[in-house]
């Protein structure tokens, strides 16, 4: 089962003693703040976790995978995530544990 906003609110309730409503609101506010930061064009740097960046992509040729028809992919602004060293190291250790 994937981690969800409800799980994070539960953790804030258990660990920090926020009441359920506060915890739920806080989790929403956290992601809304990240969305606002990205929307207003800024990079987000969360040390120990990773960086979110904004990239402008030019139009490029694409294909409808079903029909094979050629259609241009319009120019767009996208969000990218680059995991930090610490997170990468922790995740890599997981690969070792299942071999």
């Amino acid at each position: 089962m994937a981690l969800t906003k409800a799980d994070m609110a539960e953790q804030l309730f258990d660990e920090l003693g926020l009441n359920k409503r506060e915890a739920k609101e806080f989790v929403e506010a956290f992601y809304e703040e990240l969305r606002i930061a990205l929307e207003t064009g800024g990079q987000i740097k969360l040390s120990g976790f990773g960086n979110f960046d904004i990239r402008d992509k030019n139009e490029r040729p694409g294909r409808n995978p079903k029909t094979g028809e050629e259609i241009p992919i319009s120019a767009r602004r996208v969000v990218t995530f680059k995991p930090g060293q610490k997170l990468k190291a922790r995740v890599e250790a997981y690969a070792g544990s299942i071999e």
Partner: peptide, 30 residues
């Protein structure tokens, strides 16, 4: 409390990925 809450959320997210599990946040991403 805000400081602790932010750290607690990021810790939980990192721990989740480190244990091989996904994170799904509607409206933000996975």
């Amino acid at each position: 409390d805000v400081e602790l809450a932010v750290k607690s959320m990021l810790d939980l997210m990192a721990l989740t990925l480190a244990s091989g599990e996904r994170i799904e946040i509607r409206g933000f991403g996975s």
